[in-house]
């Protein structure tokens, strides 16, 4: 394929699942009508959810899920060694994500509650960047297919992708949504990275911060605002810690 006279290489891609719901991988497999174009652009050599190929010659690795076991650590390190570019994909890989909720309890209690007396090997929840160097973080819970395709185009062109630095409010206001904070709902939109088209506030859920913090977000001001609006410390902490996107923001963390 050529673009502006420049021959584009067809990079080999691997998609790997770790601890998570695999929803982000499903997003890649979604929108079938575009899959052919996607496969023309990149060669998928290792992606359990859609193909039985298990080649190890991938150049770009997409990591779905967080890291919880020793075997996952070893596997991730091996992938890192092979991949020229490693992309952490989705809230679990980028932040720890929903899985991190269990970090609030003692690990042995969690294991007993879920698995009863079965032996299970699991450790603390870690985001990918806690274990290996991450080149690109593709945010979202789940990731969005259009944004994934946008990223792939950048990877094929060899251009560093620039994710929005600004918060969700920009997109929310552009969609003429009512501000859910005005309506009495909790929302982390003012400190969360945009790019989701404000899908949660649009559906009157308030933002949960799945895309991680916007750049130079003013947490202090937002938390002050939430307090003034009458949200309890507990309620604020519950929301702020949900995706593990804002660690260190609350005084109680320090």
């Amino acid at each position: 394929m050529k673009y502006l006279g420049i021959t584009l290489e067809r990079p080999k891609i691997g998609v790997f699942d770790f601890t998570g719901c695999e929803g982000c991988q499903l997003q890649i497999a979604n929108k079938e009508e575009d899959l052919k174009d996607l496969f023309d652009l990149v060669e998928i050599v290792n992606f359990r959810e859609i193909s039985s190929d298990r080649r190890e010659d991938y150049e770009i690795a997409f990591i779905d899920g967080c890291i919880t076991t020793d075997s996952e650590v070893a596997r991730l390190k091996k992938i890192r060694k092979q991949a020229g570019i490693l992309v952490a994909m989705g809230a679990c890989a980028c932040l720890g994500g929903v899985n991190n909720l269990r970090s609030r309890f003692s690990l042995s209690d969690v294991i007993r509650e879920v698995y009863d007396r079965h032996h299970i090997n699991t450790g603390p929840v870690r985001k990918v960047a806690d274990v290996v160097h991450v080149d690109i973080e593709l945010p979202g819970c789940p990731i969005s297919k259009p944004e994934f395709e946008w990223l792939v185009r950048h990877l094929v062109l060899g251009i560093e992708p620039q994710f929005p630095k600004y918060p969700v409010c920009v997109e929310c206001k552009q969609r003429l949504n009512s501000c859910v904070l005005d309506m009495g709902l909790m929302c982390l939109g003012p400190v969360t990275r945009a790019g989701c088209n404000a899908v949660c506030p649009r559906n009157r859920l308030g933002c949960w911060g799945c895309r991680g913090p916007s750049e130079e977000a003013n947490f202090e001001s937002l938390i002050e605002i939430l307090r003034e609006k009458g949200f309890t410390e507990e309620h604020i902490a519950e929301r702020v810690k949900f995706f593990n996107a804002f660690s260190g923001v609350l005084n109680s963390d320090r």
Binding site: L4, G5, I6, L157, G158, I159
Partner: peptide, 9 residues
Amino acid sequence: MLHRSEPGA
């Protein structure tokens, strides 16, 4: 990208 292009672009 321009730096990668060739005459004729």
